[in-house]
Nucleic acid binder design. Structure first.
Lengths: 287, 287, 287
DNA sequence: ATAGGTTTTGTCAAGCTTTTGTACAT
DNA sequence: ATGTACAAAAGCTTGACAAAACCTAT
């Protein structure tokens, strides 16, 4: 806003506002191409605060120093959308086997936040937490089954049509024995958001099955997930063979600290970040 | 649409619209073969947004930057499920009599969101908006008919089989003279999602027909809708009689501020919320 | 009809009708042997639509483009529905790893047929056929994985919110070792269509997990599925224990010809029919 | 606080083109 | 029926202008 509007909102004359700027540096407005001062709504707060301090008896110079600093501080204390609260609400609902409640929270999330932030701030941390509670024995297997199925249904629905388009094709699946497909779906969604096409094979996919599909689809990338190191080691030989003909990425906690066959990209970070990285790698190489 | 129509809809003179385009790039209309500017309905929104910002005290240049940026920004930081965009897409498709386009958007919505949120965030607001436009004369009767028929077909398809099952039975219909059944269908779907069985009588149902049906079906609840107050008042006497033998709920904007006969539940809120409330009431009473 | 009649019905002068034809191609009348224009009743609609659009403020050129397109669109939108053809189309699309194609067919199905008929005429026979082809070695494991995941995502989306409501609660899951959950989902959907609430535990659920969930949810029925006889036999003992406290139904081809523990309902038919039967049994008993 | 100059923005005008309904001659 | 013509309405571009708001400097 320009100086007139700021004056109206704050009750301080334009001349005085300019004086405060020159003398105390209270405000640092941007300038238009013609030189007019352009203020933000923060500046209104700053000016109001300054007036309050002066009404409280402070000298102008002191009031300005306080007002300039205070608004900076307040800025950091305001969360836009309370993702943390929604995450714990989701967690509670799923623990209670409350499917409608969980769906309602997911609706709210999907309508208000980006897919990526939902994945990396809500869903993936929730899964991680559920896994930890399961190991400590404070979450039951039934809760884990129930929650997985609710989330899986929802995430798969978001992937509807992910095979369509003109982007590079990613063939995605879990290594044999691996049953946790939520991380894989999250990864596939993150790839999809970057323009990839997805062919989804799901949980517990034998490697010769992957090979079969790869022969007929000729994907630009094969993504395999395993949450256990053992799963990766047991598949080491067929992986090596597969890697001779296709570009392969290996993800999941099981892929860490494993000697990957040559040519296999190891993805150790979170799905969203790694999807970005893989997109860069493949994009540079092939396009 | 051409500049004159945009001017009429937005309340901004053609000269000014051209000036805003030249100076701030607020709009980027297509051109006809002869060079005339052709605008979309998005542009109406943009201009309205600009005027709102100016009414809020912003200078034209800043207001334009915000209005143009709002669309850009929405595109960049897209929520996973952009309900607002889908709603306006639906609105555009129906305005254009583009039935396949509308169906595709409904497909996408049904795949990704809960029926409830689709009803309360997309369909019902759309109906409300259509009604408002119709009153202002900016929507034609043909458009309203077309849109109603597409939505009614789709929603009724979702209700297919809603009479089956084990839940309490709701007998639903419109009061005599009432022809807008979409709100009623939405209400019935929300009840169905809560386990009710539905017997659907549709638009413009004489009350003795309702009485007959009620005698043979013994419903746990009769839901009647009227969008006009007059409709409710004219049916006051037979309603009173019906209420002696059955539990009745009265919904629709016509039900507001009306002296309801004793024993009649008046539902003034949106269908989804009221379906929840009614379910609680009846659930407490009977189960 | 000739141009005079069309003019009378549509309220547009013959000269103007000819101008619209020449300029915008709005109508393409047949010609009599003498060269007179011959119109169909569709053309009346087109002209009326054009006038509606113009009344709505659109310029003639734009109105004509919309009117000509809308009638085209409406024509394409009503092909009769051939379930058998759609089923084989679905099968082909899934065999080809063509996810978008499969989704489009599912869209068409869901828009035009009841869920029940889709399940019993398309999805379940398709699964049966896929199993048979797999045994004969004419379908690959990769195809089966891919198809299962597409269908599972779609069916789970249809079940969204199935935990809500006032109906009896069914706790559903696959027996340990059982990985084919599509039949289970179909069964759950058929129950839901009859007013049941569903708590879904998914594939490969340990029986103590089921017991845990049952203790906290107190379901009216527990549904367990197994496609192999071996799965049932191995779980015989814990099943007996579970049956002492809960009403249990056992479904899937594995449930046939097995000596069921006392009190366990054995469901040997197709999911839709058996859902009906179970609803009758439980409905008679409790309501 | 004032003076004198600058920027911003809504409006208008002139001269020409496009669009579109109607009319007329063949 | 066809083709052409015509005129009113609406639109385009360029350019200008004046009031309001804002700038710097004194």
């Amino acid at each position: 806003m320009r100086i007139g509007e700021l004056s109206r909102r704050s009750g301080v004359s334009p001349e005085l506002l300019r004086a405060w700027e020159r003398r105390y540096g209270l405000l640092r407005p941007l300038r238009s191409s013609g030189g007019l001062r352009l203020y933000s709504s923060d500046d209104v707060d700053r000016v109001r605060l300054m007036r309050e301090h002066m009404a409280g008896g402070l000298a102008a110079a002191e009031a300005a120093a306080l007002a300039a600093g205070a608004v900076e501080g307040a800025r950091h204390a305001q969360p836009a959308l309370d993702l943390a609260a929604l995450r714990s609400g989701l967690s509670d609902a799923l623990d209670r086997f409350d499917e409608p409640g969980a769906q309602a929270i997911l609706d709210a999330l999907l309508g208000a936040a980006t897919l990526e932030s939902i994945l990396s701030v809500v869903v993936l941390p929730y899964l991680h937490d559920l896994g930890a509670r399961w190991e400590r024995g404070t979450a039951s297997v039934a809760q884990e089954h129930f929650a997985s199925n609710v989330l899986r249904g929802r995430l798969l629905a978001l992937g509807r049509g992910w095979g369509r388009g003109v982007g590079p094709l990613a063939l995605v699946g879990c290594l044999p024995g691996e049953r946790h497909e939520l991380g894989l779906i999250a990864f596939a969604l993150a790839l999809r958001a970057r323009g990839w096409r997805i062919a989804y094979l799901g949980a517990d996919t034998p490697l010769d099955t992957v090979g079969e599909a790869a022969r007929s689809l000729a994907p630009a990338l094969i993504v395999l997930v395993s949450s256990t190191r053992k799963g990766v080691e047991e598949s080491a030989d067929p992986l090596r063979v597969l890697a001779e003909h296709h570009r392969i990425a290996l993800a999941g906690t099981g892929a860490r600290d494993v000697a990957a066959p040559p040519g296999v990209i190891v993805l150790t970070g979170d799905p969203v970040a790694e999807a970005e990285r893989v997109t860069t790698i493949v994009g540079d190489g092939s396009a």
